[in-house]
Each structure stands twice: as C-alpha cells, then as structure tokens.
C-alpha cells in the first residue's frame, strides 16, 4: 500500500510562552519544536501498515524551514521520502487553505491511504485532515481509534471515538483519509541506522506552481479567518495559589480544605 502521512511540527507547550511582537501568535524564539502528538501516532500506524503490506510511507508537512527537522525525524523512523511545503505562499493559513495545499501535494501521489493526527496541539482546529479528504473527494473519519485494512476489497474498517465512551465502527472505501487519535499504538523510537539512512533520503520542496495551485488560494491570503490577537486568560480568576515548600504547602492546603472549603 502507498500511504501518505501529514504531520505538523508544533511548539513544545510545556515551555514558558510569550506573546509575539505583533500580538497574533507566540514568540517562537527559544522554543523547542516537536512532531504533533497525534501525528506521531498516525506516522506509527502508517509504518506498521507499510510493513505488513510491503508498502511505502511518504511524509508531508507544511511550515517554515524548521519543519525540515520534523521531516528528518519521520524519515529516520522509516518513511521513504518527504515533501516539505515551505514556500511563503503556503504559510499562515487556516485549515481550509492549509488542507488545500496539502491535498494539492498529495493528489499526484497515487496513495491508497492518507493518515494524519486528529488535532494539532498548537492551533487545534481539528479540521485539516477532513479538508484534505474533501479536496481529494475521498471519504474520511475523524478521531480514529482502530484501523483494520481489507486490501482485497479496497476497504478499511475504522473504530471512531464518540462522546461518553461510545465508539462508531464503520467501513470506508479506499482511498480514504483517517485522522488518528492519540493512543492508537505505541510509537517507535528512531534507530541509529534509521537516523543515518534518513540523511540520504529525499525531501522535495514543491512550490504552488509545481502543484498547479493558485497562490492566492493558499496560506494567509486564502484563509477565511484571521487571527487578531492571542492572550493569556485573565489573571486573578483562577486558583488561590498556596506558597511554601512541599510540606508547608501541603499542611496549608489540608487546613484550608478543612476550615475554608469545609469539605474534609
């Protein structure tokens, strides 16, 4: 099977965040970047399917120069080659213009399956995979917790998470786009051999013209929403913070739960 995986590189949000100079995003300097969590599970699922079916995994990502590092990592894990959409015309989009660009890059690849994560840990639209499916005219499923391929009948049986502990089990015709929920599998670590091999693997960087896409339909220009500002939640609304070392804070907490909150 030919499998494409779309990954996003996102900032490690455990870090201390600062609003950027123009106020519309965070200052990316000093931040470290990682492959988005659910995209990592999508990549692992793709690698496992490729191993079972003597297939090939091609990894796609849209973003600035730094994204190359995430693609290298995916290549080290076992993807055969990578496609990096880094032209400025691709950047700054919403899920609609981002999905359009990725679908444009995927269209010529003759893939049986496109996997991606269900939601990015930074902007969290949870939409890009569905938009890709729409652009390609393929069926899709969001929040996929189980994948069973039926190669002979060109179908895939998916378990999709619903609210309140319910699952939906359905069949989709291939080719299809599956948006993978974190926790589906156990992502592997890169081997030294994999890291060495990755250095020789191809990362192509097609521009909008190569994909036959009009630049004005892409990125920030093609987006249907604009971000005006980002901000931290209002201070003072939250918890009463209890200071002191662990022992002092613990004693104060117990006292407050007894005397102030009166629940112990």
């Amino acid at each position: 099977m030919r499998i494409a995986v779309c990954i996003k590189q996102v900032p490690d949000i455990e870090a201390r965040l600062r609003v950027s100079g123009d106020g519309t995003w965070i200052d990316e300097e000093d931040l470290s970047f990682v492959i988005n969590e659910s995209d990592g599970y999508a990549l692992e699922e793709a690698l496992q399917i490729a191993e079972r079916t003597s297939g090939e995994v091609v990894v796609f990502s849209l973003g600035p120069e730094r994204v190359r590092e995430a693609l290298r990592k995916a290549l080290a894990l076992g993807a055969a080659r990578a496609v990096h959409l880094k032209d400025p015309a691709f950047l700054g989009g919403d899920s609609l213009s981002t999905g359009r660009a990725l679908a444009g890059a995927l269209a010529a690849g003759d893939f049986d399956l496109v996997l991606t994560g269900s939601q990015s840990d930074d902007v969290g639209f949870g939409s890009t995979g569905t938009v890709i499916a729409g652009e390609l005219g393929w069926p899709h499923a969001w929040l996929v917790m189980g994948v069973e391929l039926d190669e002979a009948n060109k179908k895939v049986k998916v378990t999709r998470e619903m609210e309140a502990g319910m699952n939906e089990i359905s069949n989709l015709d291939l080719p299809a786009v599956l948006e993978i929920q974190a926790g589906l599998n156990k992502p592997r670590y890169a081997s030294l051999k994999g890291i060495m091999q990755a250095k020789k693997k191809e990362i192509s960087e097609p521009g909008p013209g190569d994909l036959g896409l009009a630049p004005e339909s892409l990125g920030e220009t093609g987006a249907k929403i604009e971000v005006l500002s980002v901000a931290f939640p209002e201070a003072g609304k939250g918890a009463q913070i209890i200071d002191g070392d662990a022992e002092t804070a613990a004693r104060t907490l117990v006292e407050k739960l007894q005397k102030e909150a009166r629940i112990l």
């Binding site: 609609l96 639209f125 949870g126 569905t130 729409g134 899709h140 929040l143």
Partner: peptide, 23 residues
C-alpha cells in the same frame, strides 16, 4: 463542538466556501 460536529463541519465549510471557527 461535539465529536460528531468536528467530523463533518470542516467538509461542510469547504463545500460552502465558508469561514470555519472551531471550538
């Protein structure tokens, strides 16, 4: 903003060429 909504809403926005504001 349910799991059902997120499953179909991006495709709907796309076919209508509508703006999409999730969550």
């Amino acid at each position: 903003h349910t799991y059902q909504t997120v499953d179909f809403l991006p495709g709907l926005a796309q076919s209508l060429d509508a703006a999409l504001v999730p969550e």
